[in-house]
């Protein structure tokens, strides 16, 4: 049985009577890239602060790698960037990293700082003339850095000490598109090559859909749903909507002739047909099967909801189109 990298149970936190996180049972599988999505104020940052120990919880438990943490306790296996980067404004980037490296007791703190600076694109680069040019602005106070540079520094701080689990809250905020793509690639690489579990929160879904293997959706302080990349992909599969003169006969005919298809009867009598793997069902074969069963098709349309639209539906509290209100007939196309 695999241990979740992070697991919470009944986690709750209120601020001056305002409930920020409520009874959250989070399950982050080890080795996953877990996207925490939700609108602003949904409780994503508070949840990450509770998990990281920056904010002690009112109720509930947090387990990291199977070990239960005390309220306000931080696990050394975590690398954290929550809200603003944990930096001293009147130190430069390298000095801030040195401070963190000393706290972690790294054996060669300067080398470790240089390595993470290079990883996030703030390190030394070959200037083209054979000389190494330092890109990170040494001697410049962090207060004087751009938002994007500060954010990169925050990620660099989180990466110090080779953490097993990264908690990143809106890490791509303020970073230019090229930098954001590079950072996404870096996270994917760390996950793939070093097995680092990444929890990344964002309200910009396009930031997540290229890297995440699991999703947790927050709304009003609740974790309303957890789903895998596959489950989300299934929810986003291309489907056909058919209007036929005899829905029940059509379901039986499709179950008989095309058993691989999933057929659902919608409340208005229309049929929704999906193919395995999320691909588009073959319209010609489907029409022939219905025709041979004596079913007349009056309307046929193709829909292909995208990942973002599907997530937005869940975030907004509207169930995914095919899960809500449908009289489902999965598998061999039984109707109900």
């Amino acid at each position: 049985m695999s241990i979740n990298a992070i697991e919470t149970s009944g986690l709750s936190k209120s601020f001056r009577g305002v409930r920020a996180v409520l009874d959250v049972d989070l399950h982050v599988p080890a080795g996953s890239v877990y996207g925490l999505v939700g609108k602003n104020g949904a409780g994503k940052s508070t949840l990450l602060k509770l998990v990281s120990g920056l904010t002690p919880q009112d109720r509930g438990t947090v387990c990291v790698g199977g070990r239960q943490l005390r309220p306000g306790e931080s696990d050394p296996r975590l690398g954290v960037l929550v809200e603003a980067p944990a930096v001293y404004g009147r130190l430069d980037a390298f000095e801030n990293l040195m401070n963190r490296a000393l706290i972690l007791g790294l054996p060669d703190p300067k080398a470790a700082c240089r390595e993470v600076l290079e990883l996030v694109g703030l390190g030394a680069r070959d200037a083209g003339d054979g000389r190494r040019r330092v890109l990170w602005p040494r001697g410049t106070y962090v207060d004087d850095l751009s938002t994007g540079q500060r954010q990169r520094l925050g990620v660099a701080l989180a990466l110090l000490g080779d953490p097993e689990i990264l908690l990143l809250d809106e890490p791509l905020n303020g970073i230019d598109p090229t930098g954001a793509a590079a950072l996404r690639d870096l996270l994917a690489r760390l996950n793939r090559e070093r097995g680092v579990t990444v929890v990344i929160s964002s309200h910009v879904l396009s930031h997540l859909e290229r890297v995440c293997t699991h999703y947790g959706i927050m709304r009003g302080g609740f974790l309303v749903r957890e789903l895998t990349e596959g489950e989300l992909a299934d929810a986003c599969a291309t489907y056909l909507t058919l209007r036929v003169d005899a829905p029940e006969r059509a379901v039986a005919a499709l179950a008989e002739e095309l058993p691989g298809l999933t057929v659902r009867v919608l409340p208005d009598g229309a049929l929704r047909v999906t193919a395995p793997g999320g691909g588009e069902p073959d319209r010609r074969v489907l029409s022939q099967a219905l025709l041979s069963a004596g079913v007349a098709v009056s309307e046929l349309s193709v829909s292909a909801p995208d990942l973002e639209a599907e997530l937005v539906r869940i975030i907004d509290g509207r169930e995914p189109s095919r899960a809500a209100g449908d009289a489902s007939a999965p598998g061999r196309g039984r109707s109900s």
Binding site: S52, G53, L54, G72, E73, S74, P76, L78, V80, V82, E83, A84, P85, A86, V87, Y88, G89, R90, L91, N96, N99, R100, I103, L104, L157
Partner: peptide, 19 residues
Amino acid sequence: AHDLASGGLRAACLAPRGR
């Protein structure tokens, strides 16, 4: 005061028995 003014304090708290 500098610890409080910035997020730097978090760097110290995010360590074993940090607080």
